[in-house]
C-alpha cells in the first residue's frame, strides 16, 4: 500500500485524466448517438443508410484497432492532435454507435399504437416524437445507456496502450518501480469499480425519476 500512498500525487492526476476522458467522451457520444438514431428512424433513405453503415462499422471494428489507427495513421495523413484529444475523439465516435443502438431499442419499445394515436389526433411527426415517443423511450433507455457508459469507462484504459497517462498506465508505471502488484492493481481496480458504481447509481436514480406510474 505504501507505493500507492507515496505516488498519490501522480496517481490522482492520472485518475483526473481518466475522468476527463470519460466525461467528455460520454457527453460527446450521447449527443452523437442520439443524432445517429434520429437519422436512423428518419423518413429519408440516405440518412437511414448512412446511420446504419456508421453503426455497423464501429460496432464491428475493435476499439484498440481504431485507437492505433487514429494515433499512428492520422498524423501520417497530416492530422496531428494531442494524444488525449485523439483518444477522446475515437472513444466518442466508437461509443456513439452503441449509444445509437441503445436509443433505437428504446424507441422500438414504444408501441406502434402510440404513434398511430398521436397521428390520428393530428400531431405532426416532430410533435409525435417530442410529446409521445421520446418521453416513453427515455424510460427504457436509461439503464442500457448506463451500461454503455460503464463500458466506456473500462475502455478508457485502452488509452494506456497509445501512451496516454491515465489511471491504468500510471499504476503500471508505479508498479514497474515498486513491484507491489497486488496492492497497486487492487487499488486501481477498486477505483474503477467505484466509478462504475457511481454511474450505475446515477442511472438508477434517473430511471426512478422518469418511471411510468402504475
Amino acid at each position: 500500500m505504501t507505493a500507492v500512498i507515496e505516488n498519490l500525487d501522480p496517481l490522482l492526476r492520472a485518475l483526473g485524466t481518466t475522468v476527463l476522458i470519460l466525461v467528455i467522451s460520454a457527453a460527446g457520444s450521447l449527443v452523437l448517438g442520439v443524432l445517429i438514431t434520429v437519422a436512423r428512424v428518419s423518413p429519408i433513405p440516405v440518412l437511414r443508410g448512412a446511420a446504419f453503415a456508421y453503426v455497423q462499422v464501429f460496432v464491428n471494428v475493435p476499439l484498440l484497432a481504431l485507437l492505433l489507427l487514429a494515433v499512428f495513421a492520422l498524423p501520417d495523413a497530416g492530422l496531428l492532435m494531442p494524444l488525449t484529444t485523439t483518444v477522446i475523439v475515437v472513444l466518442t465516435v466508437y461509443e456513439a454507435a452503441y449509444v445509437a443502438e441503445a436509443v433505437r431499442s428504446g424507441i422500438n419499445t414504444v408501441a406502434v399504437g402510440q404513434v398511430e394515436a398521436a397521428r390520428a389526433l393530428g400531431l405532426r411527426l416532430s410533435q409525435t416524437l417530442r410529446h409521445v415517443v421520446v418521453p416513453q423511450a427515455v424510460r427504457a433507455v436509461v439503464q442500457p445507456l448506463g451500461n454503455v457508459m460503464i463500458a466506456l469507462l473500462m475502455n478508457t484504459a485502452l488509452a494506456a496502450t497509445v501512451g496516454v497517462v491515465e489511471l491504468t498506465s500510471a499504476v503500471n508505471k508505479v508498479n514497474l518501480v515498486a513491484a507491489q502488484p497486488i496492492p497497486i492493481f487492487t487499488a486501481a481496480g477498486l477505483t474503477y469499480m467505484a466509478l462504475a458504481l457511481a454511474i450505475g447509481l446515477a442511472a438508477g436514480r434517473i430511471e426512478k425519476k422518469v418511471a411510468i406510474h402504475r
Binding site: 399504437g113 398521436a118 389526433l121 418521453p135 424510460r139
Partner: peptide, 17 residues
C-alpha cells in the same frame, strides 16, 4: 384533416406517460 376526424382503437392506445 386528422385533427377533425376522431379515432378510437381496439387497444385504446392512451399515452402511457
Amino acid at each position: 384533416l386528422r385533427a377533425d376526424v376522431g379515432m378510437v382503437f381496439q387497444s385504446f392506445n392512451l399515452f402511457g406517460h
